[in-house]
């Protein structure tokens, strides 16, 4: 019975009405419609909440149309509503390839939301590095669980920032080349910034357990010892201040 009732709610299957008492006051169909409406409204509501800047960009009507299409093709398979919408950015990329900023805005909204309540793991800062002593440079490193990198081809980050500040967003523009964005949580606050190709490559290495010695060796190989030491010192200062690194062992 429950499977058929749920099909009545999610897919509008009419035979669910056979399970319930009909009446002249409201009627079985209208009564079941309350649950049908609740289902769509709760999933639309959570998409609106999770993708707040995309919602601001598209407006109520357009976002509603897109959300309804996504909901129709993506039943919730998660117990906790907070996890619903993880394929929304991919869905937008597949269905609106001519409007690439939509998928990017959704990916940024989702990344920031995921960073908001990602696991609490003690990150490396100058004090912890000092406490670890010289041995820290041999330790395999990783990125904080809140950190992820996104690939952008449009000025979606600028659009997102304008929407966040309640300013008129700039016109969509394709970037000269792909840019990578780092999304993470800094002092309980989700944040993002763009990366140079070199810093993104360094963070890719760290994400897979690279230690500081090997990271430095790779940088020296790429740009010479003097330049490598300067740039790594700058990166390290930023990473430690921003809470991006954790020890992986």
């Amino acid at each position: 019975m429950q499977a058929r009732f749920l099909a009545g709610v999610i897919d509008d299957a009419a035979d669910a009405e056979l399970f319930i008492v009909d009446d002249n006051h409201v009627g079985a169909r209208k009564r079941l419609d309350i649950y049908r409406h609740n289902y769509r409204a709760s999933l639309t509501g959570v998409l609106t909440d999770h993708f707040a800047r995309l919602f601001a960009y598209l407006g109520d009507e357009q976002f509603g149309r897109v959300a309804r299409a996504y909901i129709a093709g993506h039943r919730s398979t998660t117990r906790n509503l907070r996890d619903y919408g993880h394929e929304f950015a991919t869905f937008l990329g597949q269905n609106f390839p001519e409007d690439g900023e939509l998928a990017e805005l959704a990916a940024l909204d989702w990344g920031l939301r995921a960073a908001f309540d990602a696991a609490d793991v003690a990150h490396l800062d100058t004090a912890r590095v000092g406490a670890l002593g010289n041995g820290w440079i041999d330790r395999p490193l990783s990125l904080h669980p809140s950190a992820r990198m996104l690939n952008f081809s449009y000025n979606s980050a600028a659009i997102w920032s304008a929407l966040d500040a309640r300013r008129e967003p700039p016109p969509v523009a394709e970037l000269a080349g792909p840019v990578r964005l780092l999304v993470w949580r800094r002092r309980q606050q989700p944040s993002f910034r763009s990366l140079t190709a070199e810093e993104a490559e360094a963070l890719d290495r760290l994400a897979t357990g690279c230690n500081f010695i090997n990271l430095s060796a790779r940088a020296i190989e790429a740009c010479g010892e003097s330049a490598a030491m300067a740039v790594i010192a700058e990166w390290l200062g930023t990473w430690l201040a921003d809470g991006i690194l954790v020890t992986a062992d």
């Binding site: 429950q2 499977a3 009732f5 749920l6 709610v9 999610i10 649950y35 609740n38 289902y39 709760s42 999933l43 959570v46 039943r75 919730s76 398979t77 998660t78 117990r79 509503l81 619903y84």
Partner: peptide, 14 residues
């Protein structure tokens, strides 16, 4: 109440 079945969730108090 119940909230779903067969790995699909209504996120409602059915």
């Amino acid at each position: 109440c119940w909230t779903g079945i067969n790995a699909h969730n209504s996120h409602d108090l059915l």
